[in-house]
């Protein structure tokens, strides 16, 4: 009798465990968008070399995307410096034999700065800006419509100061770093304030989790 009860209890436990596994709850990973991460569709921006940059350029790679403007002297360069540091560490961890900064396909990660200030951030300005932080960084810009083909999909807002005078105006922008996976899905968001250690930990956890799902 006791054995039967134990068996029944055991079976019950086993069933509930099985159910728990099937309806796998979202794991406790900060910033992870799971289940049903947002699929990113075609978008059309211009990179710092004047080339078209769209969906094809994010497929197959992990992308860390930050939205800002080059005339921002505090939050943006702080974030870019932390991203440069994180990128170097992530790349050297993945390719210990490679020298820092190997090409983008080798290290599987790309860092993208998207300008939300199309008036001042020309292709030439973006090129000098992103390469100051790392020669492999990508700087995206274009017309307002081009920029919004990406910002609207990621769901970020930005506000250009309406009272702007001459060329000294401010732009409010998202402080987060967005994470796109190689299938062009928005799988995570890293919130400010940013620190190298946190970016590496969160990115590594999210990447490991997403890779284990498909």
């Amino acid at each position: 009798m006791i054995t039967l009860a134990l068996l029944a209890a055991g079976a019950g436990f086993y069933i509930s465990l099985k159910q728990a596994q099937q309806q796998a709850p979202t794991p406790d990973i900060e910033g992870l968008f799971w289940p049903s991460p947002k699929q990113i569709y075609a978008f059309n921006t211009i990179d710092q070399h004047g080339k078209t940059f769209g969906l094809e350029q994010i497929r197959g790679l992990w992308s860390l995307v930050f939205f800002g403007y080059t005339h921002c002297p505090d939050i943006c360069p702080i974030t870019m410096a932390v991203l440069a540091d994180s990128y170097q560490q992530l790349v050297s961890a993945e390719n210990p034999a490679e020298n820092l900064g190997g090409n983008r396909a080798e290290n599987n990660i790309q860092i993208i700065f998207v300008s939300v200030d199309p008036e001042r951030d020309t292709t030439a300005t973006l090129a000098r800006y992103v390469s100051y932080f790392n020669k492999n960084f990508i700087g995206l810009g274009g017309t307002v419509d081009m920029i919004e083909s990406l910002t609207k999909q990621i769901g970020i807002a930005y506000y250009i100061d309406k009272k702007k005078t001459a060329d000294n105006y401010l732009v409010d922008h998202s402080a987060s770093i967005f994470l796109l996976d190689p299938k062009a899905r928005l799988v995570g968001k890293l919130s400010a304030p940013h620190a190298t250690k946190n970016i590496i930990e969160q990115f590594t956890r999210i990447k490991k989790f997403v890779n284990a799902q498909d």
Partner: peptide, 12 residues
Amino acid sequence: ISEAPPTISTLA
């Protein structure tokens, strides 16, 4: 003063 990337005219 934080060094700014080249051509950037606003520094912190």
